[in-house]
Design a protein around this nucleic acid. Structure first.
Length: 829
RNA sequence: GCCGGAGUGGCGGAAUGGCAGACGCACUUGACUCAAAAUCAAGCGGGAAACCGUGUGGGUUCGACUCCCAUCUCCGGCACCA
C-alpha cells in the first residue's frame, strides 16, 4: 500500500451482504485491523505526498513502563483530529517517540540492580505495543528515543556550537541542589523551594555549573506573535520572564559606588537607607568593627535558611552594617543595612529603600526605627501619615523632591525623571528580567554527557564534532549514595585536548533532560538524518507543528526552553522559523473517581489495559472523548463508560440486526437533515477540538437512524447514503469498528483512506421549522412555519396559537419581532 | 496580594444574543425472563398551579447561561523580584 491519500467516497448505495448474528465484539476486530494497518503501512507518512502538510504532535512520554489513562486521554483525541484532517485531504505527520533519559531509570537501576538502558528500552517496547492497541495513526517508522546515541549526539553538537557562540558557559554561583536526586536544578525546576521532580526541599550551594544563555532571548520570548498559546500559558511565561522597566541608580559607599535597581526612580528623594542581600559581595567590606559581631551572627542565621524559610518568616529581619552611603541628589548620609528580604539573585542584589512608598521597606523601617520620607502624594490626597500602617505605593504626584515636585509619579514621568538623573550622572535607564540563565548540567548518569574536556593547558574545550557522540558508557557501577557512576569511571574521564593533543579530563556531568525535548519535534521530520540534527529541507517543509498538545505542567519548563532553543537554531541558520508551535492546546487532567489526582498510594488508579480488555479500545477512546470538554478534564466516573459501550453496541446492531420496536415514520428529508446537519456540526467541532460534542452528536444521530430503520425510509437511497456517511463519520473517533463496518459493507479499501463526506447544505437545513413564540419575552408556545415565511405570515401563525392568543388578549401591541428560523416575539403592554 | 480560568439538574455536561438542561451516567417504572444480567420502551430541574429557575445584585436589549458593571465562591499559577 503506497497510496495514502484520501480517495473519493463511493456514493453508490451499498447493502450489507449478510446480517451478522453475533453481537459487537471489539476483541475480534481490533487486533485484526491493527495488524492489517501495520502490514499495509497505512499510516506511513510521505513528505512528498499530495495535500497541504499538517504536523500534529502530542508531547512524547517518558518510558516509565506503562501508558496510564492520562496518556490515553492526551493521545486519543489528537489522534481522532489527525485522522479527521487526513480524511480532509491534509498530508498529516503524526509521529511518536520517547523522552527516555532521566532519573527514574537510574533510580530503578540503583534500587533493583538493573541496567538503566535495558530497563528503558524494554519499557519503550512495551509502551509502543500499548500505543498500537490504542489504535492510533502514529507513523512508527519515525520512532526514536532521546537516549539513542544517534539522537543525543546532536544534543552534544548543539552544546558545542552554543559554547563556541558564548551561549553555553560555566560559572560559579549559588545554585539549587536537590539532596534526594543528588543534582543541581534549574530555577524553573524548583517549585516553592521544592524539587519539581521529587518534592524534596532544595538546598542552596555554591557550585560551578554549565548554563545556557536564555536571558539573551528574554525580550524576544515575551513576543508571542507567531504562536497561538492559551492565555494562561502566555501569562505564566510572561510572569516567569518578569520584565521590569526602571533605572539603575548609583550611591557612593565606603566600599566604592553601589548600583541599585529601581522601577520607581521618581521616589529617589524618598530613599532613606540602602539594603544589601546577605550574600552581597560588599557586605564584609561595609561592616564596621562595632557591627561585625552582629552582622556575622545575622549572616549565619540567614545563610542557613532556605528560600522558603526566608519567605515564610512573618517578620522582616536585618542588621545595620555600621556604614553609610551618600544620597546622590541630597548629598546626605543614609545608613546601609543587610536583610534577607533582598534577593541576591535579582537586580544587583541591593536596593534603595523608600519606606514611604514600598510596603516591604515600610515594614522594615517601622521595625528598626528608620526614617520614612514622603515624596509621592495621592492625587488630591492628604500627606502620608508616617506613623500609620501602610505605605502609599500608588502613582500620585511627586512632592518634597525639589525640581521634580508637581510631576506625576510612576510610569507617567519615568522617562523625564530618568533623563534628568542621567544628566546629573547618577542614574541610567535599565530593564531587568526575573528570568535567569538555564542551568543545564546535572550530576547524574542517565543523560547526555556534556561534550567538554578540561586541559591543564587550554582549559575547557569543546569535543570536536567529528568525535561526537561522547558515548555514555554501559556496564557502570551504581553506589547506593546515588552519586553518578561517571565520576568513578576512569576510562570515561580520560580524554585528549583537541588543541594540544595532551591529556585532558572529561566533564562527568550530563545535560538536563529538558535539552532532549527542546528540539525533538524537528527530529521527527528526518529521524535518521546523520549529517546534522535534522534535514533542513524537510524541516522547512514540515515545521512548525500545526497543533501541539500536552499538559499544562510544561507551561514554562519545556515550552519556554523549546522556544528558546528554536530561536538559537534560527540564529544558527538551521531553521527559518522562530516559533516551533503554531498552535498549542492543553488537555485537562483525568482524576480518580474520588476526584483526587490518580496515584498508586491513593489506590484510585484507572488502568487503561483493564478497560481495553473489558470494553475494547474504541469504547475507551469514545469515553475519553466524551467524559468532559477535552481541555478541562475531570474525575473518572466508572459507570460512565457504560454509555459509550452501549452506544457502539447500538451502532453495531444498527448495521446488522433487525430493529425491534414500533414502526416509525421518519421522512426522507428528516433522515437527510439528521445526517447532514450532524455532519456539518461535527466537522466544525473537530476544528475547535470539541470532542465531547462530537460524540453526543454521533449518539443523537444513532438514535435517529435506529428510528429510521423501523420506518419505510429504510428502503430508500437516502438510507444507504445515511449509513455510508455515518460510517465515514465514525472513522476518526472509533477507527476499528468503522473499518469493520466499512468492509462488511463490501468495500475493499480502508475506510481511513476515504475522503470526509461533503455536507449537502440544502439537506442540512429544514424547509419548515418549529420555532418558539414569546409574548413580551416569555415563551408561550411554538409554531411550525416555512423557513422562508414572511414576518406577516409568521406573526399570523403565532397569533393563531391559542396559548399565545390567551396572553395577547386585551393587550396593546408594542412591537413584533421575527428572526427567521429562531424566534417570534410579540411585545404587548 | 497579583495574574489566569470556572460557577447550569443527583452527576459529567450542551446551548457564543433567540424554546435552558442536547447527549450520556445514575435512578424509577414497564416489557422480555423461572430469575438475574443484557436488551427494548417510558419517565426523570423545582412547584398543586400561577409560575420560578444557569453563584449573587444591578444594567443593556423585544429577548441574556451568553454582553456590561459590581460582588461572592471555587480551581490553577506566581508570590518580599525592589
Amino acid at each position: 500500500m503506497t497510496d495514502h491519500q484520501p480517495q473519493p467516497t463511493n456514493t453508490q448505495p451499498i447493502n450489507i451482504s449478510e446480517p451478522r448474528s453475533e453481537r459487537y465484539n471489539p476483541h475480534a476486530i481490533e487486533a485484526k485491523w491493527q495488524q492489517q494497518w501495520a502490514a499495509d503501512g497505512l499510516y506511513t507518512f510521505d513528505p512528498n505526498a499530495p495535500g497541504e502538510k499538517f504536523y500534529a504532535l502530542t508531547m512524547f512520554p517518558y518510558p516509565s513502563g506503562n501508558l496510564h489513562i492520562g496518556h490515553w486521554y492526551s493521545y486519543c483525541a489528537p489522534d481522532a483530529r489527525a485522522r479527521f484532517l487526513r480524511m480532509n485531504g491534509r498530508n498529516v505527520l503524526f509521529p511518536m517517540g520517547f523522552d527516555s533519559f532521566g532519573l527514574p531509570a537510574e533510580n530503578a537501576a540503583i534500587k533493583n540492580n538493573l541496567d538503566p538502558r535495558a530497563w528503558t528500552y524494554s519499557n519503550i517496547e512495551y509502551m509502543t505495543g500499548q500505543f498500537q492497541r490504542m489504535g492510533t495513526m502514529i507513523d512508527w517508522s519515525r520512532k526514536f528515543a532521546t537516549s539513542d546515541p544517534e539522537y543525543y549526539r546532536w544534543n552534544q553538537w548543539f552544546f558545542t556550537e552554543m559554547f563556541k557562540r558564548g551561549l553555553a558557559y560555566k560559572r560559579d554561583g549559588l545554585v539549587n541542589w536537590c539532596p534526594k536526586d543528588q543534582t543541581v536544578l534549574a530555577n524553573e525546576q524548583v517549585v516553592n523551594g521544592h524539587c519539581e521532580r521529587c518534592g524534596t526541599q532544595v538546598e542552596r550551594r555554591n557550585l560551578s555549573q554549565w548554563y545556557l544563555k536564555i536571558t539573551d532571548y528574554a525580550d524576544e520570548l515575551l513576543d508571542f506573535g507567531g504562536t497561538d498559546m492559551p492565555e494562561r500559558v502566555r501569562a505564566m511565561q510572561t510572569h516567569w520572564i518578569g520584565k521590569s522597566v526602571g533605572a539603575e541608580v548609583v550611591f557612593d559607599t565606603p566600599a566604592g559606588p553601589e548600583t541599585v535597581f529601581t522601577t520607581r526612580p521618581d521616589t529617589l528623594m524618598g530613599a532613606t537607607f540602602l539594603v544589601l542581600a546577605p550574600e552581597h559581595a560588599k557586605v564584609a567590606e561595609l561592616t564596621t568593627p562595632e557591627q561585625a559581631e552582629e552582622v556575622r551572627a545575622y549572616l549565619e542565621v540567614s545563610g542557613g535558611k532556605t528560600d522558603v524559610e526566608r519567605q515564610q518568616s512573618a517578620e522582616k529581619t536585618g542588621v545595620f552594617t555600621g556604614s553609610f552611603a551618600t544620597h546622590p541628589i541630597g548629598g546626605h548620609q543614609i545608613p546601609i543595612w543587610v536583610a534577607d528580604y533582598v534577593l541576591v539573585s535579582y537586580g544587583t542584589g541591593s536596593i534603595m529603600a523608600v519606606p514611604a512608598h514600598d510596603e516591604r521597606d515600610f515594614e522594615f523601617a517601622r521595625k528598626f526605627g528608620l526614617d520614612i520620607k514622603e515624596v509621592i502624594r495621592p492625587e488630591g490626597g492628604e500627606p502620608l501619615d508616617v506613623s500609620g500602617n501602610e505605605a502609599y505605593s500608588g502613582e500620585g504626584v511627586i512632592v518634597n523632591s525639589g525640581e521634580f515636585d508637581g510631576l506625576p509619579g510612576g510610569k507617567a514621568s519615568i522617562a523625564t525623571v530618568i533623563a534628568k538623573l542621567e544628566e546629573r550622572g547618577v542614574a541610567k535607564a535599565k530593564t531587568t528580567f526575573r528570568l535567569r540563565d538555564w542551568l543545564v548540567s546535572r550530576q547524574r548518569y542517565w543523560g547526555t554527557p556534556i561534550p567538554i574536556v578540561y586541559c591543564p593547558e587550554h582549559g575547557a574545550q569543546a569535543v570536536p564534532a567529528d568525535q561526537l557522540p561522547v558515548l555514555l558508557p554501559g556496564n557502570v557501577h551504581f553506589t547506593p549514595t546515588g552519586q553518578s557512576p561517571l565520576k568513578q569511571d576512569a576510562e570515561f574521564r580520560k580524554a585528549t585536548c583537541p588543541v594540544c593533543g595532551g591529556e585532558a579530563e572529561r566533564d562527568t556531568d550530563t545535560m538536563d533532560t529538558f535539552v532532549d525535548s527542546s528540539w525533538y519535534m524537528y527530529r521527527f521530520t528526518s529521524p535518521h538524518f546523520d549529517t546534522g540534527p535534522w534535514d533542513p529541507a524537510l524541516a522547512d517543509k514540515l515545521m512548525p507543528i500545526d497543533l501541539y498538545t500536552g499538559g499544562i505542567e510544561h507551561a514554562i519548563l519545556h515550552l519556554l526552553y523549546s522556544r528558546f532553543w528554536i530561536k538559537v537554531a534560527r540564529d544558527m541558520q538551521l531553521t527559518d522559523i522562530s516559533e516551533p508551535f503554531k498552535v498549542l492546546r492543553n488537555q485537562g487532567i483525568i482524576l480518580g473517581p474520588d476526584n483526587e489526582k490518580m496515584s498508586k498510594s491513593r489506590g484510585n488508579v484507572i488502568d487503561p489495559d483493564d478497560l481495553v480488555r473489558e470494553y475494547g479500545a474504541d469504547v475507551v477512546r469514545t469515553y475519553l472523548a466524551f467524559i468532559a470538554p477535552w481541555e478541562v478534564g475531570g474525575p473518572w466516573d466508572p459507570s460512565g463508560i457504560n454509555g459509550p459501550a452501549k452506544w457502539l453496541g447500538r451502532v453495531w446492531s444498527l448495521f446488522f440486526d433487525e430493529i425491534k420496536g414500533p414502526a416509525e415514520t421518519v421522512s426522507e428529508s428528516d433522515l437527510r437533515y439528521a445526517v447532514h446537519s450532524t455532519l456539518k456540526k461535527i466537522t466544525g467541532d473537530f476544528e475547535r477540538l470539541s470532542f465531547n460534542t462530537i460524540v453526543a452528536a454521533l449518539m443523537e444521530l444513532t438514535n435517529t437512524l435506529v428510528k429510521a430503520k423501523r420506518s419505510p425510509v429504510a428502503h430508500t437511497p437516502a438510507w444507504a447514503e445515511a449509513l455510508n456517511v455515518f460510517n465515514l463519520m465514525l472513522a476518526p473517533l472509533v477507527p476499528h469498528i468503522a473499518e469493520e463496518l466499512w468492509h462488511e459493507r463490501g468495500q475493499a479499501s480502508s475506510v481511513h483512506l476515504q475522503s470526509w463526506p461533503a455536507v449537502d447544505e440544502a439537506a442540512a437545513v429544514r424547509d419548515s421549522v418549529v420555532i418558539g413564540v414569546q409574548v413580551s419575552g416569555k415563551v408561550r408556545g411554538e409554531v411550525e412555519i416555512s423557513k422562508t415565511a414572511s414576518q406577516a405570515e409568521a406573526i399570523a401563525a403565532a397569533r393563531a396559537n391559542p396559548d399565545v392568543a390567551k396572553h395577547l388578549d386585551g393587550k396593546q401591541l408594542v412591537k413584533e419581532v421575527y428572526v427567521p428560523g429562531r424566534i417570534i416575539n410579540i411585545v404587548v403592554r
